[in-house]
Design a protein around this nucleic acid. Structure first.
Lengths: 334, 334
DNA sequence: CATATTTCCGTTAGCGCTAACGGAAATAGC
DNA sequence: GCTATTTCCGTTAGCGCTAACGGAAATATG
């Protein structure tokens, strides 16, 4: 409500019509310097705050970009958001975030609610959606960018990396370093499709050299350093000859490193450890963690830029998929 | 645009008036079961997505809550957002986030933009704002909750902890453990008011026992484990008899711990370390970090609940400040 | 100086929806 | 049976703003 002041109040005070006041405040170009100043002063003096709801309805333009992500707690999507914010900053578009909590039904609800606001664009994390969500997304004319992941069929445009390849290439890198008795540690992947793709890529990568996973642990609930530590200990107890653990995220890998530090296990001589994401907080570790940069910031930037492009041109330009190349960051832990 | 379908299309197809269609879709209570079904089916068959812009303008209700925070990268505000999301989930209100990047001018812009949408409430992190922002906030009738921090003068309502007390009490806890030669490590605090309040409280706490800070380092740019590690090394080089470092966040404290692990410094015998926030990722460390829980999740929940309360009652209930009690979590690092 | 052009501002008509009222049909009451 | 009540739906008006047009005044053109 902010107060009940409307454009009429400003116009009356400035002694002009509502239309002129509207133009002056939006600095459209059909207003003289004098009247503009009058209007501006009038608006400032009464503390007028324009009503964007009304403005958007009249102009049929809503300068918002919906961003649908699973969570803000995972240290992963925050950088995506940052990239989006940076790209949109110089424009009139503003991001609006919605959280799905890794649940596809919630995602469908969030997407529907977002579209009810008629945003200028929609950025959605991931390629997997419920049937309802897919139907809604296919039906809309709002520019849509699915991000993070390119292993699948985008509905419209897409920016991401191949998580399958990331897993596959990490397997090759690990084997090249001579490791053969390899375990996998991650969270239950039924709802984390990208982690699951990395896992599949990793297994196939090992397979290309005739190697099979010795052990795997998929614990439920989210990633944490502490769980990484505990499950590494358990896995090593089960398989005393294990010489490498691939973790589905750096957070878990940090836990694995912590266990080694505590137990006096030398990395990578006695145990090699690799993760995924290239999280900045892992950079404080005594060893440099082997990982794959998931290019989160860049993905955010590019996705937002695609929305901006589509908004400038009125022509509906065609769907485009950008697959960013990842490479294994060897570090000193494998 | 989502498509150009309007209520009129639905009404026509269902053979009812726009008003009836509107009522049916919002499940207002003046529609028979038959016609409701007719309308629902019609809407579903053509993939109608209601236009909330128009709806909000007509009903003068915008079920959004603006949330203004500095950043999503700091591992701190994500839990606040989570608390807010959880509180709002069962209601019709939805959170909309805006980022200020720790800049008060940006904050003022974000607040202004938020208010232009006439949200049902506004949650803003911190008590320090630019003069412009203060003027806007004082002028608005939108329920406002300032969060995180209670050391200052709230404009309207407020939920948070006393950062001054947190620093003060940590000083007492550290001295009680027998430490006397104490350093402080943090980021430059000109823009991080809460860190600055903790620092002041800490210094005053030491002072209450006649103790002065031996050394302090305030590096620019954000917190990171790596910087915590490096600056700890430097500080120890400067002051070889230091027996404790208080870090302005757990992230920095983790870096300090990392340095000790690498350098073979025993914690807390040779060096005591304390942080702030009680971040979950610190729980994987070999020692339990002494810290103060900043109650981020709870703050988010309470703030959102206050908005909900205000929305239910039409009476403008009075401003309220909730100061949550913090306590020092001793851990094993001091 | 008359005409063409530009600059500036107002009027009209809606954007797509809902609040509020009113009225017809269906049900209840006695 | 007729009136009182409830159930259901439509009509009117308007939320606060802007697009589009048009027209008067100021300036330019030759």
């Amino acid at each position: 409500m902010t107060s009940n002041l409307t454009l009429k109040d400003v116009a009356l005070l400035a002694g002009v019509s509502e239309m002129t006041a509207s133009r002056a405040l939006r600095d459209a170009n059909d207003v003289s310097i004098n009247t503009r100043k009058k209007v501006m002063d009038a608006a400032a003096s009464i503390g007028y705050v324009p009503n964007r709801i009304a403005g958007s309805l009249a102009s049929k333009k809503v300068n918002l970009v919906g961003v649908v992500i699973p969570s803000v707690k995972s240290y992963v999507f925050s950088e995506v958001l940052d990239g989006i914010s940076e790209s949109l900053k110089p424009s009139k578009l503003r991001p609006v975030f919605g959280l799905t909590d890794y649940d596809l039904d919630t995602e469908a609800d969030v997407i529907r609610e977002m579209l009810e606001w008629r945003p200028s664009g929609l950025i959605v994390a991931g390629l997997e959606h419920s049937e309802i969500a897919k139907k809604i997304l296919k039906n809309t004319t709002t520019p849509l960018i699915e991000i993070m992941d390119t292993d699948g069929d985008p509905i419209d445009s897409c920016v991401g990396v191949s998580h399958y390849s990331a897993g596959y290439n990490m397997a090759l890198a690990i084997m090249e370093k001579g490791h053969r008795r390899i375990g996998f540690l991650g969270t239950k992947m039924s709802s984390d499709f990208r982690a699951s793709k990395r896992f599949n890529g990793f297994v196939d990568g090992l397979q290309s050299n005739g190697i099979k996973l010795i052990d795997q642990e998929n614990y439920s609930s989210g990633s944490s350093v502490e769980k990484g530590k505990n499950f590494t200990a358990e896995m090593l107890k089960r398989n005393q000859d294990l010489d490498c653990i691939y973790c589905s995220t750096d957070v878990i890998a940090m836990g694995a490193v912590m266990h080694c530090l505590e137990a006096g296990i030398s990395i990578p001589n006695e145990l090699a450890i690799a993760g995924f994401n290239k999280l900045s907080m892992a950079s404080g570790l005594p060893i440099k963690l082997a990982t794959t940069d998931s290019l989160r910031f860049e993905i955010g930037k590019l996705a937002a830029n695609m929305i901006l492009e589509r908004n400038e041109q009125n022509i509906t330009n065609p769907a485009k998929t950008i697959e960013l190349e990842t490479s294994v960051d060897m570090g000193t832990s494998i």
